[in-house]
Each structure stands twice: as structure tokens, then as C-alpha cells.
Amino acid sequence: MTENHLTGPANPRAHLTSPALHATLRIQNKLLAAARDHLAEAGFTEIHPPVIGPVTDPCSRGSKQVDVDYYGHRYKLMTSAILYKQASLLAFDKIYCIAPNVRLEPLETADTSRHLAEFHQLDVEWAGASKEQAVQLAEDLVAQMVRRAVAELPQEFEVLGRDVGMFAGLVKGVFPRITHAEAVERLHALGHGQSPDAELDWDGEALLSAQSDRPFFVTDYPKGSRGFTDRESPTAPGMLRNFDLIASDGFGELCSGSERTFEYAEAVTRMRETGENPRKYSWYLDLMREGIPASAGFGLGVERFTRYVAGLDAVWQANAFPKLPGVVSP
């Protein structure tokens, strides 16, 4: 427990020298090592996506992208690797990367304990995969990451006072799946006014998360709640072939994934539906015109996942140099 978990570390030295941070980062290290092993075994190649580019993932709830002056052209810091992940499938059928993302989140997120303006994501993409296959891969991966950390780092969990018994359900690797419509229904039953057309709001997500003893998937979000990269169901228009993985015990969303929009005309139409200007996505759309593989994949927030596994009060405690939204920090 940290006294100032809502406001970030008191100073960099105190944070960097704290035994809790050391234990946390060792757990994080182990989680990622386990992920690399698991994915390599499943035939995935690790790639290194760009840090800047002419465009980046547009849809991140209310957050702002960071502009970079690239020889007089407006470039962006990556908010996620999604566009490059899809393009990379022209090289390999199964890829993943662990990369930093920068999102200037709304200031109201500074005290949610769940948002960082700069964070890392374990991003996976799989050519030809369905939503169901991606969900299965995420489930296996998460269970394996936690199994390894729990088995190999008992001391670190002890330093943090984290009872690993709470992962008894998780390590079995069977996570419940509910649709977005069912989640909305449950929230309404709990008296929470969740919009059926929108992403689960943070309070709603926390409510569902607090009721579960293991992570669970929410699938099939409505169009209008996500960006154009999430593919619309060909059989159920208005519904997306996507999913979130939500942690138990109120830790909230860990991972988002979907089948991807990969056909040119569909991508342009969806860009318009999400208020985007296709003109700025020219490199990406040019690739699509000639064809890119259908795929599914997901991104797992490294700090959020570490926070959950380590049982931390706030996500910043899982980052050596945390940047809380709006807080000036190194």
C-alpha cells in the first residue's frame, strides 16, 4: 500500500529505490518472459514496431495523440501498434511486439488508478484467426503468464503481500465469456445506467469486475463504441467481432482485441463512421487496396496486467517512470 497512490510517486528516487517497485518489476519481467516463451512456442515472431508514423490508432476514449514535427510533416507517437501489426502480417502470419504507447488521456482519468499517459502493450496479431481463436490465445497466454510468475517468484509476491491463492481460478485458464449486451443487462440490473450503444464506462466495468473471481471476456461490442479497425460482423450488422478481457476484483480492463477490418472499401466506410479522414491513412489504405490478410489479435496492457497480478493500488506502481495524465513527471 502506498499513501499517495492517487497522486503518483512522491519523487523518482523514493520510487526507484522502493522494494515494492523492485518486486513489481521482477514480476513484470517474469510475465513478459513467460509471454515470449509461450508465443514463440506457438510460432509467433517478435517484431519492433515504429515509435512514430504519419497516423496511429485513432480510437482511444477521449484521449489525444501527441504530434511530432517530422521534417515539417505532422507525425504521431504511437497510441498503439495496430496499423503496423496488420501491415506486418505481409511478412509473417503470427507476430507480436511489446511497445510503448502514448495517449494524452483526459484529466479526469488521473485518479482512476488505471490510466497512464505512457504505457506499454503486449500486442499480438494472427493472420487468418477468428475472434474465438484470439480469445482462446489470450486466455491461454494470460493463464500461462500468471502460472509462471506465481511458481517462480513467491518471494516477490510476499514482499507485496499479494495472496497468490486468489489466482486458483485464473490459472486453470477457463475464463467466462459474456456479450456486451449481457453485460449491459447485468449493469442495468445493478442499477447502473450503462448505454447500450457505448463502451462499458469505467464505473460499469469496475462493477462487473468486482463481482468476478477470475478474469472474464466481454465480447461483441456495438459499432460506435470502437474504432474502425474492429471488424463489423458480416452476419450481425452493427455488432463488432471484438472482445475485452476484464480482470476480477475491480482491477478493470486488461486487454482489448478483435477481428480486424481488412477490406479496403469496408475500412474507408468505417473510417467515415468513426469520424476519420481517410486521406491521412493513405499508406495503410494503399496496402489494403492491394490486399492484406484477414486477422485477429489483441493488446494486453503491461502495466495494468502487472498491477492486477501484483495486487497494486494503482497502475503507476507498475512503471519505473510513471506519467499520470496531466501530471508533469520525468
Binding site: 477521449g62 460506435g224 467515415r272 463512421e273 468513426t274 479522414n277
Partner: peptide
Amino acid sequence: SSPGTFTAEILRQQIRLMRNNFPR
């Protein structure tokens, strides 16, 4: 500037996305 292309579905979804992304 381009006028922007709108169909009923584009208008509907843009509004929903505004509500989703900027709930306040």
C-alpha cells in the same frame, strides 16, 4: 476542405462514437 461523406449510418455512428469517446 472536403464536405465529408455522410450516409444515415455514418451520421448515426459518428454521433454514437462522440458519446462514447467524450461521455462528459
